[in-house]
Design a protein around this nucleic acid. Sequence first.
DNA 1: TTGAAACCCATAAAATACCATGTTATACCA
DNA 2: TGGTATAACATGGTATTTTATGGGTTTCAA
Lengths: 155, 155
Amino acid sequence: MRKTFLFLDTIINKVDAKGRVSLPSDYRAIVKELSTEIVCYRSLTAPCIEGCTEELLDKLADDIDNATDFFSETQDNLTNLIFGDARRFGFDSTGRIVLTEKLMKHAGITDTAVFVGKGRKFQIWNPDNWAREETRIRAEALKNRPSLARKPEND
Amino acid sequence: MRKTFLFLDTIINKVDAKGRVSLPSDYRAIVKELSTEIVCYRSLTAPCIEGCTEELLDKLADDIDNATDFFSETQDNLTNLIFGDARRFGFDSTGRIVLTEKLMKHAGITDTAVFVGKGRKFQIWNPDNWAREETRIRAEALKNRPSLARKPEND
DNA sequence: TTGAAACCCATAAAATACCATGTTATACCA
DNA sequence: TGGTATAACATGGTATTTTATGGGTTTCAA
């Protein structure tokens, strides 16, 4: 039994006319071992698709329940935004998921997709957009060394 | 046996002259696995129908018991409002529920309904109203990146 | 008896599971 | 270390199942 479950690496796969893409085999392994499923949704902040395990979203549902009360407006908006957009993506025996029109449009994906590991999550990008984004992020990191300092009051 | 039970995605279904709508198959699966039932009521804050498992309402009943006094006015009002309005909705062999006149009127639903997943709950909207609401929420989220900080006193 | 609600059947469309093949990566052996 | 055999994977195509939805029939209660 493995102890770590991280989405890693950057993998380029083809998307066919039906929107089918092979989920990287590493990702599939995680899904199997956790007996969970992949959930994808449009990133709130970037032109890409974001994915994670259903388990993680389930935890988020609990967190929201605990952080806000049953009638809170924040809870209303947040849950609509996240869960309303997210969708389960089971893969077939050959390991492919079928992306929806909505997701592909948001990410500008047509016939090629790039899977980018993010640890507990991953992202799916249009190759060109990702190339640009990666350059930007790396340059940013050079200028301002990243920090994991404890977050201040207002973060 | 699955470990997670989330209402997800946004699904558009038709409502026929009798008020019948297909409950999204994903939602049905949850109901079956939890051996519970779907409960719907008019949203307190939005022009839409809200639904959840009877299980969740049961938990809410407990929460209200714990959070308020047996004789409190708040409890009286809340319980009347929610439980007085809620109703079980069993679905037929093809997976359809029959919406009541009261609910459809509150949500402005006539011949089309949009199911919006909210994690532990879901909502049913008039398509146009939902489109507007979604735009509003997304814009809001872009301005103020959502946070899951513990709730302050007044949330 | 009449209206409404629950139940059943049929069909088209959409989602998903299955099969086959070329290619790449991995393991094995000299 | 180099070369070959083997297994895993990505990808194109096809078949099967599920699902949504329209219509009809029965049942129950007012």
